[in-house]
Computed example of a mutant assay.
Amino acid sequence: MHSIDTQLFRKTFGALSTGVTVITTLDAQAERFGVTANSFTSVSLDPPLVLWSQSSTSRSHAAFRDSDRFVIHILADDQSPISDRFARSGGDKFVGLDIEDGIEGLPIIRGCAAYLECRKIAAYPGGDHVIFLGHVEHLVRHDREPLVYKNGQYLPTAGAPALSQAAA
Rank of each mutant, 00 (worst) to 15 (best):
Q29I: 02
S55I: 02
G134Y: 11
F132C: 08
L8R: 13
V136E: 13
G14K: 03
F132T: 10
L26G: 01
F13S: 09
H2E: 14
L26I: 03
L8S: 14
K11P: 08
D77F: 00
I103Q: 09
F33A: 05
V20Q: 09
A62E: 15
I109R: 07
M1H: 12
Y124W: 12
F40Q: 02
Y149D: 08
L45V: 11
F9K: 09
C118N: 13
T41W: 04
E145M: 12
S67A: 15
S58Y: 00
R119V: 15
R141L: 10
V148R: 13
E117P: 09
L139H: 14
F70A: 13
F94L: 10
S3N: 14
R88V: 04
R119C: 08
A37S: 09
I121L: 10
P156R: 05
D27V: 01
L155C: 06
V148P: 07
Y115P: 03
D5R: 07
C112G: 12
F40Y: 12
I108H: 07
A166H: 09
F64S: 08
S58C: 00
P156K: 02
L75A: 03
V50K: 02
F13G: 11
Q153V: 10
R141F: 07
I82F: 05
T24F: 00
A166L: 03
D101G: 09
G96W: 10
L147M: 09
L8T: 15
D101A: 14
S80K: 02
E137G: 12
